[in-house]
Design a binder for these strands. Structure first.
Lengths: 143, 143
DNA sequence: CCCGATATGTTATTTAGTTACATCCGCGCG
DNA sequence: CGCGCGGATGTAACTAAATAACATATCGGG
């Protein structure tokens, strides 16, 4: 059951399990970040019932860089572009009005952080960079 | 009851309420980050009983920069140095072995993020930068 | 003295994430 | 074939994190 379950939309990787594919598909269709429980609610019709089923899929997906966790939101997004998990450090700008999330990679930030790490002896395994504020659209809006 | 309740250790600001002072004191004495519930447990003897009492104090303290929230840990630390809240962006390096947290300010990172914001039209209100990994001490340890 | 703003206290509830345990499925190997 | 092992699944119960709703108190100014 590994390949071609049906005519689903997009194929990110050919070796995803059913649950992983369902979760990633849900994230991909969402307009913004979703909590694990949001995802669960949208997948009840597909037979998923327990939070753990979602968390397990999310773990694998985030490990592989196909999804990202937004720490400051306790929520998840689908990775915006395929190259991202090659460039280690990804940053997010989260709009507090409309909820939209922009994913961007600033290599300069990553090298800054690497520089600090080297200087201090810290050995980083994961980096989280999140901005909260207003996106361009919302910032220019009246009230 | 705003000033000089008792001979407590250190005075960070003269206008903290009793609960705020208790919470900040707890954070200051802790060796590492504490969750809100950790703090609550340590303050039962002082009469605090409900999570909300802790969260309210933490809100005020983080607003004023006297404490910081570690998003990737759902935990809080006492601000390490008095100057920090003048330089907007603070970064944290969190050791996954010993739990120690180092707070550092890299102005270069802040200006990078400001630069991206300006270019993209995003108006940031808060920035989160957290490294996970091993501190110098733990990284050099055998197993 | 009264009033509005701010801080508190308390209970219950929602949201987030984990532990523990049983099952199932594909696959390599004797 | 049949055994067994590792990875994925399913389910229930639970712990942890955060908030809602409501009642009370405290303080400072007009």
């Amino acid at each position: 059951m590994t390949q071609s379950h049906k005519g689903h939309d997009h194929v990110w990787a050919d070796d995803l399990t059913r649950n992983q594919e369902l979760v990633l598909g849900t994230l991909a269709h969402a307009h913004g970040p979703l909590s694990a429980y949001d995802i669960l609610d949208r997948l009840r019709d597909d037979g998923l019932r327990a939070p753990l089923q979602i968390y397990r899929a999310l773990d694998k997906l985030t490990e592989r860089g196909l999804a990202h966790r937004l720490e400051s939101l306790n929520a998840f997004v689908c990775c915006a572009d395929a190259h991202c998990h090659q460039s280690g450090c990804i940053a997010f700008a989260i709009c507090e009005r409309c909820g939209k999330v922009e994913e961007f990679a600033e290599p300069a930030i990553e090298s800054e952080l690497k520089g600090w790490s080297k200087a201090s002896g810290f050995v980083p395994s994961r980096m989280t960079v999140e901005l909260r504020g207003l996106c361009a659209g919302c910032a220019s809006q009246p009230a």
